[in-house]
Simulated scan of single mutants.
Amino acid sequence: MRESLMEVVEDPTPPKAAETYDARLHPDPIADPVECAPYLVVTARGTGESSEEHMLSPLTRVVSDARPGEVLTLDLDYPADSDMNEGGTRGVRLLIDTLGVQAEACAEQRFVLIGYSQGAMVVGDALAAPATRLVGATTGELAPGVADRILAVVLYGNPRFTSSETYSFGTFDAGVDGLLPRQAGSLAGFADRLRDYCVAWDFVCQRSLDLDGGAHGTYYDNGMLLDGAAFVIVRLPLLDSAPSAADRAEPRDPG
């Protein structure tokens, strides 16, 4: 995995996906709107994980159980494989388009974004200005009104972890960043609604020599998933009343 991450910066050749998902060349969204639940939680899984059950699944179940009938969970349909330049580019475009079509189709819907490992890089780069991204530089940007509807962002084992940021949480060593650290301040606009969790000796977010990957998988049972879930739950406004069946059944036609 370390080698796959380093290829993102060491190979100067633009991936084929840079043209395929270029928002200027191909402006039509690659995502279709889904249900207009009050809250849409989008997960971006880590490399090699199943889209049906992955590191972030327990977190989303806790959030859904806390707000029954109000939360729709969608796992980002990107490859999450070892070719992070190609797959990550699709992931960034797909996340931007998903939020865009949902914002247009569902006027009251609010968003939560959660990413693990490669998925954390995808989420962070989708939120950042294209010039500061490692993947998805051609895929466009979130409209300001869409960005304002993001209530919470939670990341784990982030290769772009920057230890000095105010939203960095965990047992990480101060001054030690991830394998591909993000430019300081790149996500300043989301700082008050973002938590980026990293444990010491996680070689992905701590650039350590512990390459057995053991620490990178400890988020599942070290309490940080529950902490992230609690952060999300308190940021979901209480609804005045349950949404009607008509409100939740189908998205409005954006066209």
Results as ranks from 00 to 15, higher is better:
Trp201Gly: 02
Ala147Lys: 04
Glu19Leu: 05
Leu99Pro: 06
Asp65Pro: 00
Val234Phe: 10
Leu226Lys: 13
Asn158Arg: 12
Ser164Leu: 06
Leu225His: 09
Ser244Gln: 07
Asp125Ala: 14
His216Tyr: 06
Val42Glu: 02
Leu142Asp: 10
Leu236Tyr: 07
Pro159Cys: 08
Met1Glu: 14
Ala200Trp: 09
Ala17Leu: 13
Ala120Tyr: 11
Gly91Ala: 13
Leu211Val: 14
Arg2Thr: 14
Ser186Cys: 12
Glu104Met: 03
Thr171Gln: 01
Arg110Gly: 07
Gly115Ala: 02
Thr138Leu: 07
Cys198Gln: 00
Ser82Val: 11
Asp173Ala: 15
Pro237His: 01
Val42Pro: 11
Met55Asp: 06
Gly136Thr: 12
Asp81Ile: 00
Val199Cys: 06
Tyr39Met: 06
Val232Phe: 01
Gly48Phe: 12
Ala37Gln: 02
Ser241Asp: 15
Pro130Tyr: 03
Gly91Leu: 09
Asp202Gln: 03
Val122Ala: 12
Ala200Phe: 02
Gly170Ile: 01
Asp227Cys: 09
Ser241Thr: 14
Asp65Phe: 09
Tyr197Thr: 05
Gly140Pro: 02
Cys106Pro: 13
Val135Gln: 04
Phe169Asp: 14
Ala18Lys: 05
Ala242Trp: 06
Pro237Val: 03
Pro237Cys: 07
Ala245Gln: 08
Pro68Leu: 02
Ile30Ser: 03
Tyr39Cys: 01
Arg24Lys: 13
Ala80Asn: 10
Arg24Phe: 04
Asp173Gly: 14
Gln102Ala: 10
Pro254Cys: 11
Ser163Pro: 12
Pro29Ala: 07
Leu99Met: 08
Ala242Thr: 12
Val204Gln: 14
Arg207Pro: 05
Ala103Cys: 07
Arg110Glu: 15
Ser117Gly: 14
Pro254Leu: 04
Arg149His: 13
Gly48Pro: 02
Thr132Ile: 04
Thr43Gly: 00
Asn85Cys: 14
Arg90Ala: 15
Val123Lys: 02
Arg207Ile: 00
Ala126Glu: 08
Glu141Ala: 12
Pro14Asp: 05
Glu165Asp: 08
Leu127Phe: 06
Ala215Met: 03
Glu104Lys: 12
Phe111Val: 13
Thr166Ile: 04
Asp148Ser: 15
Thr166Leu: 10
Ala174Gly: 12
Asp240Phe: 01
Met84Ala: 00
Ser50Ile: 03
Thr218Gly: 04
Thr98Asp: 09
Asp81Asn: 13
Val122Lys: 05
Leu59Pro: 05
Glu70Gln: 15
Asp97Met: 09
Ala18Asn: 11
Glu108Met: 02
Met55Leu: 15
Gly48Met: 07
Leu127Lys: 00
Ala66Arg: 05
Ala128Cys: 13
Leu95Phe: 10
Gly214Arg: 08
Gln102Pro: 02
Met84Asn: 03
Val63Thr: 01
Thr43Asn: 02
Asp196Tyr: 00
Leu25Thr: 00
Val122Thr: 12
Ser64Leu: 10
Arg160Ala: 07
Thr138His: 11
Phe161Ser: 03
Val8His: 08
Pro243Lys: 07
Ala18Asp: 13
Val42Ile: 10
Glu165Ala: 08
Leu236Cys: 02
Gly136His: 05
Leu40Phe: 09
Tyr21Asn: 00
Phe172Val: 09
Glu49Thr: 01
Arg160Asn: 03
Pro14Val: 05
Val154Tyr: 06
Phe169Cys: 14
Ala147Leu: 04
Pro33Leu: 04
Pro181His: 08
Tyr116Gln: 03
Ser163Ile: 01
Asp227Asn: 13
Leu211Asp: 12
Asp173Tyr: 05
